[in-house]
Amino acid sequence: MATTTIPTPAPKINRIGLTVLDYRGGKTTLCAGCGHNAISERIIDAMYEMGVQPERVIKPSGIGCSSKSPAYFMSRSHSFNAVHGRMPSVATGAILANRKLIALGVSGDGDTASIGIGQFVHLMRRNLPIIYIIEDNGVYGLTKGQFSATADLGSKLKTGVVNDLPPIDTCAMAITLGATLVGRSFSGDKRQLHSLLKAAIAHKGTVMLDVVSPCTTFNDHEGSTKSYKYMKDHEEPLQEIGFVPAFEEINVEYDPGTTVEVTMHDGSRLRLTKLEEEYDATNRIKAITRLHEAHEKGEVLTGLFYVNPEAPSFIDMLNVTEEPLATLPESATRPGREALEQAMEELR
């Protein structure tokens, strides 16, 4: 009997020859519907599409449900699940040791805005090359639903407890302190988050993305301001974000009247189609003002708030050699005998 072999379609590969499967991680153990899982998916897609070598990526994280998520994407990248609130320092050390690594740090709102606020603040100041993602659900998921410091005024816990302290706006803070690409998104906003993540990968400097990521188990009910429903009803994107990576030649026309193009450090282009006439994502002061305005008005603003592709990174400032410090040979790290002789002579 004649058989026709149906050719299996070749799996899609990216520009470095990897399939999306090469970016996958272990099976998630987070709750079904948890926003954090959706963010992991977006990270996988963005890394795959950008053709990032997974072995060059490191995934530092703190402690929390969110901080567990690096186990669920990119198994071919080294992970460092550190201690609560201290991921920034661990990431900083790793990048100092090897400037060729691409750091994608995952934190939670508790991990960042409470116990870790000190390290967060100082990380933002340094403009270390890192993508810092806050998976923001307004509660401590892993310790079963207490309020975090990003919970909005008046937001209600399942138990009926109402939050009466003002939230910390991590985006306004990051911009104030010196982060050079800052945005807010929503785990349910596939397109926007995808573009922001790709821009983040192309950026050189500190990227801070606050991604609202509902906790289905402890903070997804009526009265919560970080629920799926609340976000769907209230999310107000500042702009539509288009991203053209450096390696793509496509040159689609755009209307300079409504769209601003920002060229990134690596030659990629960000196309920001304004939904708000006046907004200029390269103006720090205006960005901060607009975020404070949003709080006054009770808006849930998302989008790219601020970008500065030019600022020198921490590594540039330290004048660190191009080769990773971690693997410098002994000939580079141990001065010769004459050096010790000279030092001794000075002490005689």
Binding site: F80, S89, V90, G93, A97
Partner: peptide
């Protein structure tokens, strides 16, 4: 924390 991050990465 930085010492650990750096040591982990090989410094």
């Amino acid at each position: 924390g930085m010492v650990l991050g750096a040591g982990w990465a090989g410094a």
